Amino acid sequence: MGIYPADVEQQAATVIAAYRDLGWMITTAESCTGGLIAGALTEIAGSSAVVDRGFVTYTNQAKMELIGVSSATLEAFGAVSKETALQMAQGALIRSDAHVAVAVTGIAGPGGGSADKPVGLVHLALRSRSGHIDHREMRYGDLGRDQVRLATVRTALDMLAGAPQTPA
């Protein structure tokens, strides 16, 4: 048994197998998960054929410097927003050799939430070189930091699993 729950490992194994069969690579851009998505993927033997790289961009400065999120986007919409998540995915795709990028930004808690952006709010975005774009706004609730982060990993893996079925 690995460090992730069995269902997450199974999800990651399914993603790795599907992308390996297509010869596709994945990159991640992670804020609230701090690298857990890349970690789940690399938990699977043979993942080096699929995982290109991961960006952990916890601060706004890191989002701007490493993956090109614009300061205007951060000022207008905030770090936890659809717009920021989409820019994170686009920036990771541009700065990698991957075919697909998944990005996450959210509020895992226990603090940091507000009425507009409560604890448990996470924006996930996926972009592919073929032009496929997916965004999900998840409101997991105040489940506790670990559970919000783990739920985000599950959703990101689900998004990745669906991407190979989209037309190229």
Rank of each mutant, 00 (worst) to 15 (best):
P5G: 04
P5V: 05
D7R: 07
E9T: 09
V15K: 01
Y19V: 01
R20N: 03
L22C: 11
G23N: 12
S31R: 04
S31T: 07
T33C: 02
G35W: 00
L41P: 00
S47P: 02
G54K: 12
V56D: 10
V56L: 13
T59V: 10
T59W: 15
N60K: 15
Q61S: 14
K63T: 13
M64N: 12
E65S: 11
V69W: 11
S70N: 10
L74I: 10
F77G: 11
F77H: 15
G78I: 14
A79E: 15
T84H: 08
Q87L: 08
A89L: 10
Q90L: 09
L93D: 11
I94H: 15
D97V: 08
H99P: 00
V100W: 01
A101Y: 03
V102E: 01
A103T: 01
A103I: 01
A103Q: 00
G109C: 02
G112F: 03
G113Y: 04
S114G: 04
L121P: 02
L121D: 03
L121E: 05
H123G: 08
L124T: 07
A125L: 13
L126G: 05
R127E: 07
R129G: 02
G131P: 03
H132L: 07
D134N: 12
D134M: 14
M138Y: 04
M138T: 06
D142M: 02
G144C: 05
Q147Y: 08
V148P: 01
V148F: 05
R149Q: 10
L150P: 01
L150D: 02
V153G: 04
R154K: 15
A156R: 12
P164H: 08
Q165C: 08
T166P: 00
A168H: 10
